[in-house]
């Protein structure tokens, strides 16, 4: 296995992120970089259910928004530190994933997707009517001073997001290469056959939904302090759902590196366009790229790579099993 290589790359990635916070002079790098890292986590987390199991979750925004508001609540009610906000948001997300999964995972295909949209509307409506966290008009937040060794809050958030990328990818990679991943692939290929081959399909889907929900929601938590403001319309923006889905599809859903590459490619392009042209154009680009890839490369960047470099291989993990 390439286990050591992965962890070395992960360590190098975090070191580079930290190094950047020491040496870079312009804070804008971190504002833009944070968003790219955020989408790497969202796409990676989305792919655990949407890619491996084939259950297209349109409720990424519900998980993300709930993460934002868990952080707001924790900060207002208990003055909780950022890491605790993230952890609690993650747990809330896992519970939500499990609960929503229990209600909706017996539905298949488009019906599941519609149910997840309904869920996000319900949660957003609930938040809009909750005065304590600001209701419909939103809430201003004051950043506490950054924790040492950081001297700027945004640089700290940037490194935290980098660590979350590593955690999310490590978990996605483990899921993919273990018996869980094999079971989820069986579910995606043919759920009835999977069940009759001994795969506990509902349990596996619930597990995937909880893991996915954990990271989607956890990534919402630091967004509150990133913007120093939270309102339901932006926290529950459908854009998060569309982006996470599009990035995974464009990168390729079969391997953990797909969503990572897709998010890197799309989020960077979007950031670039936001600065150079306008923030509306970036949504257009998302749509155009999605159409291009669905037509020209349905298996995403991974599919393109395999078509040109590795014909006939089916399993990037090498087919070994780790029970």
């Amino acid at each position: 296995m390439r286990g050591n290589g992965f962890w070395l790359a992960a360590a190098a990635f975090i070191s580079a992120a930290y190094g950047l916070t020491v040496f870079a002079t312009n804070d804008y790098v971190f504002f833009a970089g944070y968003i790219i890292l955020q989408f790497m986590v969202l796409a990676t987390a989305w792919n655990i259910l949407g890619g491996y199991a084939g259950y297209v979750n349109f409720g990424t925004n519900a998980f993300f928004g709930l993460g934002v508001y868990t952080a707001v609540f924790m900060a207002k009610a208990f003055g909780a530190p950022l890491l605790l906000q993230i952890l609690v948001a993650g747990l809330v997300g896992a519970v939500l994933g499990f609960a929503v999964g229990l209600l909706t995972l017996r539905m298949h295909g488009i019906f599941f997707s519609i149910a997840t949209i309904a869920m996000s509307i319900i949660i957003e409506t609930f938040i809009i009517n909750w005065k304590f966290v600001g209701g419909a008009s939103g809430v201003q937040l004051l950043r506490p001073p950054p924790t040492a060794p950081f001297d700027s809050y945004i640089r700290m958030l940037f490194v935290i997001a980098a660590v979350m990328v590593v955690l999310a990818v490590a978990v996605a990679r483990y899921v993919q290469n273990s018996w869980i991943g094999r079971g989820l692939r069986a579910v995606r290929d043919d759920e009835i056959a999977a069940e009759c081959t001994g795969v506990p399909t509902l349990q596996l889907k619930l597990l995937a939904c909880s893991i996915s929900g954990f990271f989607l929601c956890a990534m919402g938590a630091p967004a509150a302090m990133y913007l120093q403001y939270a309102d339901p319309a932006s926290a529950f923006n459908l854009n998060y759902s569309v982006s996470a889905l599009a990035m995974s599809l464009i990168g390729g859903t079969a391997h953990w590196i797909g969503p990572l590459l897709g998010a890197l490619l799309l989020a960077s392009t979007q950031q670039l366009l936001t600065v150079t042209i306008s923030s509306e154009v970036n949504v257009l680009v998302l749509g155009l790229m999605l159409v291009l890839f669905v037509v020209g490369a349905p298996d995403g960047l991974i599919g393109l790579y395999r078509r040109f470099f590795k014909p006939k291989s089916s399993d990037p993990s090498g087919g070994s099993s780790a029970p």
Partner: peptide, 17 residues
């Protein structure tokens, strides 16, 4: 069949689970 998998992997699903 589990279409995205090789014959080997198809059987490994049964053995794993």
């Amino acid at each position: 069949p589990f279409k995205s998998m090789t014959v080997l992997e198809n059987l490994l699903v049964a053995i794993d689970f």
